[in-house]
Design a protein around this nucleic acid. Structure first.
Lengths: 231, 231
DNA sequence: GATAGATATTGTACAAATGACAATATTTAA
DNA sequence: TTAAATATTGTCATTTGTACAATATCTATC
């Protein structure tokens, strides 16, 4: 990109910021990067950058996340758009937040490009961030909590094959609500799960059966209108 | 705006489209305008236009809606952002949808600016629209239905004082589900309503009691955490 | 002012879902 | 073989949901 182009681009441009929520030890974290460039050099921020002129938003989300953190194969979901005219000190930059939920230990984040460091920080210990990124993180966290009720994104936080107890623990954490084991199993009766023959390994007690989310059946049922996910 | 500016602006710009849902005679409608300008001249579309470089999004939403339809004092809510690179034939235009819910008979929509006509069309009879506006309308309608479940925005669609039957009709339409009268009354048992002494007027049968939504009590209960609205 | 017509409002009985608690089953470790 | 640990299933009272019926109250008409 030439300098003159950059100038025009930057008087009115569109960026995309990724709020990556990571689950570990029963806690939700957010992935931050340290900026090595102006503006807000040396500030912590969420990974984000300008969208290319010919790039679709979901593609941009993946590219930007990979460029800055080397994370890939993560399903990103659209969140809110933030367009305050003063949110970026160098010009009008409207930004669209995308978010994802991952298990921290299944991925390896590495600083790349102009990201100097990466850091997982618990959601309730987020420091002062660059731009309006605190607003973006908080708003997106609220949205996440709502979406957990209506969309089966909780499975992003579980291993592909999980025990019903793991599922229940996640539920209890996400909705901050304890639940009886037997009753939890009744509650999820209609969620399309695949029961495998395989069992939990290396536990000092009766191993639990492993399940996985039946994504194909889920989409079929939703399409037919015979099922709507609700936690 | 000068011609050269316009050119740069238009190679990469940001617009805002308003999905205005209107309720009348037990049906949800969408407000359309007929475009008198290219591209998509003479096509029906939802009211939308470019956001000014210094304009915040909520302000732009109000301005654009007023410019094209003369509607004002309507509470607009942000919905999704649509950024497919080919969605606009003349360049890259990313657009952010905003939506609102109103009672059609309480407002007067009038074509203005480059809108040649305005039209309320039932949600299930929306014609082929300009750009990707069918996608925007459908996605936003899904979002609306989700929000109706968790937030008491349905009362925006009812008269301030309404009968339980009116309320039920709205429910049945919004969720596309018929319901027994007696059972509907049980279902809404915990929704904070004020029962007035006043009754329905000018009907040829036993008039129904009038109710209104107890917004004050609702907010108090939500604040205390003793109640969460759910339809 | 009595009665039919229309819709509002309330009641009942059964089915299904929920919640608290208990019982049984399967594995490891000793 | 038995204890320890957790998985899984079962029971029953309570609440909520559903279908249907009964009663109440108003208007219109004679």
């Amino acid at each position: 990109m030439q300098n003159s182009d950059l100038k025009n681009f930057f008087t009115y441009s569109f960026s995309l910021d990724c709020v990556i929520f990571g689950y570990q030890n029963g806690k939700i974290h957010v992935l931050l990067i340290k900026r090595s460039i102006e503006p807000f050099e040396n500030y912590w921020a969420i990974p984000g950058d300008l969208v290319y002129p010919d790039e679709d938003l979901p593609v941009a989300a993946e590219r930007i996340l990979y460029d800055l953190t080397r994370l890939k194969n993560i399903e990103l979901h659209q969140a809110q758009t933030f367009g305050n005219p003063n949110r970026h000190p160098q010009g009008r930059v409207i930004t669209n937040a995308y978010f994802a939920l991952i298990r921290i230990d299944e991925f390896q984040a590495e600083a790349s490009s102009w990201a100097e460091e990466v850091l997982w920080v618990p959601i309730d210990e987020v420091p002062n961030l660059a731009f309006d990124h605190n607003l973006i993180v908080n708003s997106t966290y609220e949205l996440l909590k709502q979406k957990l009720t209506f969309e089966p994104i909780c499975f992003d936080l579980l291993p592909v094959r999980f025990t019903l107890n793991e599922f229940q623990q996640l539920y209890e954490f996400a909705f901050d609500q304890e639940m009886d084991k037997a009753n939890f199993r009744k509650k999820i009766k209609y969620i399309p799960l695949i029961a495998h023959d395989e069992k939990q390994q290396n536990v000092k007690h009766r191993p639990a059966k492993l399940f996985s989310f039946n994504e194909k059946l889920y989409h079929e049922q939703v399409k037919k209108g015979i099922y709507q996910f609700r936690m």
